Simulated assay, not measured.
Amino acid sequence: MPFVATLPTQEQKSAYLQNLFKEVYLKDLIERTNISKTYELESLLDILALNIGALANPSTIKKHLLVKA
């Protein structure tokens, strides 16, 4: 059973998964590719994650990034 499933509350599960994403996946990606604009990367990943299952084209992504800026 995955560790996150053993956590008692939804808040703890959410915090664990967010921390895992930031400390493992995002940090590794930034270090490997020497990305300096981490805010933009995080914004892009937020847009893509929120639109899972929907078509993501460059103009839609650009529009969302301009709104967040």
Rank of each mutant, 00 (worst) to 15 (best):
M1P: 04
P2I: 01
P2N: 11
P2G: 03
F3R: 03
F3S: 01
F3T: 03
F3A: 06
V4F: 11
V4A: 08
A5P: 00
A5L: 07
T6R: 14
P8N: 07
P8V: 08
P8S: 07
E11G: 00
E11Y: 10
Q12N: 02
Q12M: 13
Q12R: 01
K13H: 04
S14Q: 05
S14V: 02
S14T: 03
A15T: 01
Y16M: 04
L17V: 00
L17E: 09
L17F: 01
L17H: 03
N19M: 09
N19C: 10
N19Q: 15
N19Y: 04
F21G: 01
K22V: 01
K22E: 07
E23M: 13
V24N: 14
V24G: 07
Y25F: 14
Y25S: 05
L26I: 04
K27N: 05
K27F: 00
D28V: 00
L29T: 04
I30L: 04
I30M: 05
E31T: 05
R32G: 05
R32L: 09
T33Y: 06
T33F: 10
T33P: 09
Y39A: 14
L41F: 02
E42D: 02
E42Y: 04
E42T: 06
S43K: 15
L44M: 14
L45K: 13
L45D: 05
D46E: 11
D46C: 15
D46M: 15
I47E: 11
I47P: 00
L50N: 11
N51H: 07
I52E: 08
I52H: 08
I52R: 07
G53E: 05
A54S: 09
L55D: 13
A56H: 11
P58R: 13
P58G: 11
S59P: 02
I61H: 01
K62H: 07
K62N: 08
K62P: 04
K62L: 07
K63W: 09
K63M: 14
L65V: 12
L65S: 11
L66K: 15
L66A: 12
V67G: 05
K68A: 13
A69R: 15
